[in-house]
């Protein structure tokens, strides 16, 4: 279980990105974070695995305070949180396989990996992860040769290599077209349902939120302004959504393409 308590982040230029945010995530949830750009979604996700140092507050992960962890135990904690990004953040020059293997860096002895060497077990895992996202035949291509959707699937495979308990997904489909968006979120949903991996995902299309989320929190100006269950969101109308979200909220595709959106 992940508990976020009174989390506050003030950047060095004085911007308060998060103000006293508290919530908790049960194992196996598909939690969607909504909010305008600049509302603090990315900061929140990055504070959880301390890619960004929180200014105040606690993050309790299975009873351990992440914010107090030294670098050695932080390395162990980070292995539990796989992360995928809006811009995929693959190392373009390296092969797909090497990008996926990078997901093992938290486990392998540092000296060996510095020469881009991994053991047999890791290679086998990489093969498995690539098969899972359907990209096994692309293993030896360079990452930049892949399309956007394929790159994001490599991103997921990389996260899987960590054998994560949680996947943090920062706008994972914002750079993709609607069909690909469903394909990527479909992978996340399967991991969530079949392997019990908790997903914390920021999104900004109402219909995607309604389709995939098991719970939603809303951020506005760094503050937690909304919290709702699966049923709450499904009942939500566009007008209510916009109230939480702001005027820029929009639907991604005609409802006919989507399963499970009843009120659209």
């Amino acid at each position: 279980m992940l508990e976020v308590q009174h989390l506050t982040k003030v950047y060095s230029d004085g911007t308060a990105a998060l103000k006293d945010v508290s919530f908790s995530v049960q194992d196996g949830e598909f939690l969607v974070v909504i909010g305008l750009s600049g509302a603090g979604k990315s900061t929140l996700l990055r504070c959880i695995n301390r890619l960004i140092e929180p200014t105040e507050g606690k993050i309790i992960w299975n009873g351990v305070d992440v914010t107090k962890a030294d670098s050695k135990s932080l390395r162990k904690i980070r292995r539990d949180f796989g992360m995928i990004f809006q811009q995929f953040n693959l190392v373009q020059r390296l092969s797909v396989q090497m990008n996926v293997l990078a997901g093992r860096l938290g486990y392998v002895p540092p000296a060996m990996s510095l020469l881009y060497r991994f053991n047999e077990e890791d290679y086998r895992m990489a093969e498995e992860a690539l098969r899972k996202v359907g990209l096994l035949e692309m293993a030896y291509k360079r990452a930049r040769e892949l399309s956007g959707g394929q790159q994001q699937r490599v991103g997921i495979a990389r996260a899987l290599m960590q054998q994560p308990k949680v996947i943090l997904a920062d706008e994972p489909v914002a750079s993709l077209d609607p069909v690909l968006a469903h394909s990527i979120l479909g992978y996340l949903e399967r991991l969530n349902k079949e392997e019990g991996i908790t997903v914390i995902c920021s999104l900004h299309y109402l219909d995607l939120v309604q389709r995939y989320a098991s719970r939603v929190i809303g951020l506005r100006g760094g503050q937690l302004v909304y919290e709702g269950s699966r049923e709450d969101i499904r009942r939500m109308t566009d007008a209510q959504f916009k109230e939480v979200y702001g005027e820029e909220a929009e639907r991604i595709a005609p409802p006919s393409l989507l399963g499970g959106t009843k009120d659209a």
Binding site: R78, R104, P110, L114, Q162
Partner: peptide, 21 residues
């Protein structure tokens, strides 16, 4: 690009590993 650096850090890589990868 700062993105890949962030991504590699997030896997639990050390500083040196991050530089190499």
């Amino acid at each position: 690009d700062h993105g890949p650096i962030e991504a590699v850090q997030a896997t639990g890589a050390t500083k040196l590993q991050t530089i190499m990868f």
